[in-house]
Design a binder for these strands. Structure first.
Length: 337
DNA sequence: GCGACAG
DNA sequence: ATCTTGTCGC
């Protein structure tokens, strides 16, 4: 199993964002949404906004030239008052309602200013990778009932990611093995790009388990599989990279629509996406009010997902291997510093 | 009516 | 996901 599929392609998004911000000329401003478009996906606007608030402010950093929609100030990380003074010093007219419209640079102008072509945008490249990987997904019944199943999850403490792998027997659900790794998180959380944040630590912990001969027949991942805008959620991405059966499990639905029927304890309802039955919503036998969503990862089918996961619920909302991986990774992350 | 959106 | 205190319920 190779890890080059992720590590080699993950861009330093923060460095690129800093470059984009540095290129905003004095006397002009832009918005989080325009910067996100330069990065290749408007969806990243939220990350750009939180980054501005939390970033390590450098003396030469031009973050005061980023404003909110409509030119309103604030949330820059340096404070609205400081931002207003800096902008006025550059000749930007700052009115009570925000900066004047003509000072705002749109995504088009900003792109040409930076000489950024469409195909240079990092998130666009990552989407292309997902679309390419999607072709490699295999939907098929499991060759046989598994003898075990593992859950994987990742928790965070600052810039550190803690990945845990927990293997249980199938169908008994007895815990057989648990291990973890800690590594630096290299990419932010942006919806639909989760794999570029979490797959690297996940692969590390799975590789560690494999070295100790603890690789399970099926791996369940805390995240979507084919129920993803480009059919390449982290569970499918992981599955294709290691070419083994994977199942995606989430507490909320990323995309897809479910059958409009009553969901009884222990029951399932189909979830369709792009006209295909790729997942189910499943309520545990014990009847937790909140169900979970299963989606096909790789080398499995919807029926297989349900058959593998259903016996692994104990007293929690999530199936045991995922529940334990979540709990341990969180505990380990908390101890970090 | 439009857009949201996993962790 | 994480930041956070007490509080309601099985």
């Amino acid at each position: 199993m190779s890890e080059s599929e992720v590590d080699d392609v993950v861009p330093d998004l923060e460095a690129i964002l800093r470059q984009c911000i540095a290129a905003i000329p004095p006397g002009r401003v832009t918005t989080c949404g325009a910067l996100a478009e330069l990065l290749g996906d408007r969806q990243a606007a939220r990350w750009v906004g939180t980054w501005l608030v939390e970033h390590t402010h450098l003396e030469e950093c031009a973050c005061h030239r980023v404003v909110r929609v409509g030119g309103r100030l604030g949330r820059s990380g340096i404070g609205a008052d400081v931002q207003r003074d800096l902008l006025r010093r550059e000749g930007v007219a700052v009115l009570p309602g925000g900066v004047s419209e003509e000072a705002i640079i749109g995504p088009q102008e900003l792109a040409s200013l930076l000489g950024i072509e469409d195909e240079d945008r990092p998130l666009r490249k990552l989407r292309a990778i997902q679309e390419d990987l999607r072709k490699k997904v295999i939907i098929t019944p499991l060759p046989a009932d598994p003898k075990d199943c593992a859950g994987v999850d990742v928790s965070y403490r600052g810039q550190w990611a803690v990945a845990v792998y927990c293997r249980v027997s199938w169908p008994g659900g007895e815990k057989l093995y648990e291990t973890s790794v800690v590594e630096r998180a290299r990419f932010p959380y942006i919806t639909s790009y989760l794999a570029f944040r979490e797959l690297s630590p996940m692969l590390s912990v799975i590789r560690k388990a494999a070295r100790e001969d603890q690789l399970a027949d099926v791996i369940a991942v805390d995240g979507s599989g084919l129920l993803h805008p480009r059919g390449m959620g982290i569970a499918s991405h992981l599955g294709v990279v290691i070419d083994r059966p994977t199942i995606g499990i989430t507490k909320t639905l990323l995309c897809g629509q479910m059958e409009q029927k009553e969901l009884l304890p222990g029951g399932t309802l189909a979830v369709e996406w792009e006209g295909r039955h790729l997942g189910v919503v499943l309520r545990s036998q014990r009847g937790h009010a909140q169900p979970v969503f299963l989606s096909v990862g790789h080398r499995i089918d919807v029926e297989g997902c349900v058959r593998v996961i259903r016996p692994l619920f104990a007293q929690h909302r999530l199936p045991d291997p995922i529940y334990w991986a979540d709990r341990l990774s969180r505990a380990l992350a908390r101890q970090l510093k």
